[in-house]
């Protein structure tokens, strides 16, 4: 069963086409990765699913119902975890969750119970009476999630829920996402961290210029680009490496230098490793490590969009 179906979805801001005739299906029980560089149309799509923006053309169906006609039903069944923290600093953790859950029609004992459940789920039950200003970044992110799940939505949209937090909190959140999924929630997950997407998402869609340009499991996506390879060369050099001659080597498509590591994206059928090494030795670059890899999601994204996910 499809939890979400998007057909011919279009959004225009004046003359600017932000979302262009998009079609997408999210099945029940999926953790659906929704990837796109900044300005690709990802947030606009999410905002239309959440009824924050009006649809210019097309249709969004949630659990089989058109959200334009059944707006309240749609809102009751969606939980949103915004990219930016959306909590009140003047209210305690408990009051924040209690307030937002109360907007979904929960009252009395049930509201109290759901509030505690949500806080417990994100590990903040013991700090329920504290104000968010006393929380770490990770705890605030967890509270941000608690505010979205207390009303037990069928679909949870998580827009970069791990941005700017420590690895421990990130792991906690990723485990929470998995747990929510096991509990029956369907999740749409966006992130700039490709390894997160690889770890938790069952299916992925890549959006670029307002259109879905690729969709499938991570294996399906990787298999679309069998003609390329990634070469990683660790080096030690006080001077910046001259990338120009490497780019001119046959088969090399892209070269990046980052943290004493050269990332070379090349055609798979061309054996150019020797030429690359010779060029580096000639430039007096001390090679420390060398690794040739099959394409990962990052490569897939780069190949399909021509941009890095963090661009």
């Amino acid at each position: 069963m499809n939890v979400l179906e998007i057909q011919g979805l279009t959004k225009k801001f004046g003359d600017f086409l932000a979302v262009d005739n998009m079609n997408l299906k999210v099945r029940e029980g999926e953790i659906f990765g929704f990837l796109g560089a900044n300005g690709a149309g990802k947030s606009t799509t999410i905002n239309m699913i959440s009824s924050l923006l009006r649809i210019t053309k097309g249709e969004i169906r949630l659990l089989g119902k058109d959200i334009a006609k059944h707006n309240r039903f749609a809102k009751m069944n969606i939980g949103i975890v915004p990219q930016d923290l959306a909590i009140y600093e003047e209210m305690t953790a408990y009051e924040n969750v209690h307030f937002f859950a109360g907007l979904y029609g929960l009252r009395g004992a049930e509201l109290k119970e759901r509030t505690f459940e949500a806080l417990e789920f994100v590990g903040l039950a013991e700090r329920a009476k504290e104000y968010p200003k006393n929380f770490s970044g990770g705890m605030k992110r967890r509270l941000n999630i608690a505010c979205a799940i207390a009303h037990k939505p069928k679909l949870i949209i998580m827009d970069e829920p791990t941005v700017g937090i420590d690895p421990q909190s990130r792991n906690y959140i990723l485990n929470s996402v998995k747990k929510l999924n096991q509990m029956g929630c369907t999740i749409i997950y966006t992130s700039h961290y490709m390894e997160e997407v690889e770890e938790i998402c069952t299916r992925i869609a890549i959006v670029d210029h307002g259109k879905i340009i690729a969709e499938g499991t991570k294996e399906q996506l990787k298999s679309t680009i069998t003609d390329t390879k990634d070469i990683r060369i660790g080096y030690k050099s006080d001077q910046p490496v001259n990338l120009k001659p490497i780019r001119l080597i046959q088969g090399v498509e892209r070269v990046m230098a980052q943290d004493q590591m050269l990332l070379i994206h090349s055609k798979a059928e061309v054996n150019n490793l020797n030429a690359i090494i010779q060029q580096l030795i000639q430039d007096e670059v001390e090679i420390r490590s060398l690794d040739e890899q099959a394409p990962n999601l990052e490569t897939v994204f780069l190949t399909l969009t021509g941009r890095n996910l963090r661009d």
Binding site: L52, K75, A86, I87
Partner: peptide, 13 residues
Amino acid sequence: TRRTAIRLGASPV
């Protein structure tokens, strides 16, 4: 400014 407008807007209110 607090970004809570997103949550309020997405809620059935």
